[in-house]
Write a protein that binds this DNA or RNA. Structure first.
Length: 290
DNA sequence: GCTTTGGTATCGGAGTATTC
DNA sequence: GAATACTCCGATACCAAAGC
């Protein structure tokens, strides 16, 4: 369980996102409501570039805005680099966005000259962008195509998912705000195991608070995403006691019906949760206290 | 006020393109 | 074919401006 050594940063699970990284990032780089100081605006612009363009070198990033103006690119490239990796001034180092964990190094570009570092958003970085940048669906679509290999179970199946659950594909934004992860109000709807499954997601990954591999974090996010589909904001009349199957359950079933791989993957998680609760219940029963 | 950030300058490495 | 510009980086220094 180690993260790739050259990514240049460490980050934790979703709990860590909600209770540590998100508040930290809000303090350092702003949230969506407060008026941002210039530095926060600069960082957010940088994040947005990586959001819509995917993996890039600092030079690529500068080039997006100043196509052929070499001197402008040079200047901007320095600016981006300093924001990314921090700076050392008179022997004092100040951290950059890379140190916080919103951005990671991803391989090297060998296009020209000496190999150069490439950067992209981490999964936390993607969540932070969804949280604070005012992104259009079009922006999100661009990001999805650039980052599909990072979150394959969701971004890799985007068009398929969209054809079934429509705008629910954008609901990752709920998670990006730290909602419906461990909130008590999940218990409200007693007709699905939403609360139990969400709780189990947290249990399953709880030991990776300090550090998690990107692959495991992607799995955790994916479990959240599909489990979230069980959530129904309002109990519509059409879905009252008369109908047999809960709307959320129907939605999940429709998604799994035509994607066996996805279905098997989630089923394994589902069984795991089931066994976990069975064991815990037995533990309580057999404790002999009462 | 002190610290952090922005603007800019300068140096140097490693490769490519151009000139002679 | 060697000398030279030029490109794409990466690092640090100095001072001013911004922010607390």
């Amino acid at each position: 369980m180690s993260l790739s050594p050259d990514q240049g940063t460490q980050y934790g699970n979703l709990f860590s996102y909600k209770y540590y990284l998100r508040p930290l990032a809000h303090r350092l780089y702003g949230n969506s409501s407060t008026t941002k100081v210039k530095h926060q605006q600069n960082v957010q612009k940088l994040l947005q570039i990586l959001f819509t363009n995917g993996t890039s070198t600092t030079w690529d990033m500068a080039k997006i805005k100043f196509h052929n103006d070499i001197s402008a690119i040079r200047t901007k490239e320095k600016e981006y680099r300093r924001l990314l990796i921090g700076r050392t001034d008179r022997g004092r180092h100040s951290p950059g966005v890379l140190d916080v964990g919103l951005i990671v190094k991803d391989g090297k570009s060998y296009k020209k000259g000496s190999p150069s570092d490439q950067y992209r958003l981490s999964l936390h970085g993607i969540l932070y962008c969804l949280d604070v940048l005012n992104l259009s669906h079009k922006d999100v679509e661009k990001m999805v195509s650039k980052y599909s290999n990072i979150l394959p179970k969701i971004f890799g199946k985007w068009e398929y998912l969209k054809s079934i659950i429509e705008d629910d594909v954008y609901k990752l934004q709920i998670l990006s705000k730290g909602l419906l992860l461990d909130n008590p109000n999940l218990v409200k709807d007693q007709r699905t195991p939403l609360y139990e499954l969400m709780s189990y997601i947290n249990i399953k990954y709880r030991r990776y608070y300090e550090s998690i591999s990107e692959k495991d974090l992607a799995e955790q996010i994916s479990y959240w995403f599909y489990t979230y589909l069980l959530y129904q904001r309002k109990t519509s009349k059409a879905n009252s006691n008369k109908t047999k199957t809960h709307l959320g359950v129907q939605k999940l079933q429709r998604v799994f019906k035509r994607d066996i791989e996805l279905s098997d993957w989630y089923k394994e998680f589902f069984k795991e949760a089931e066994n976990y609760y069975k064991d815990r219940t037995n533990m309580i029963k057999n404790s002999g206290i009462f």
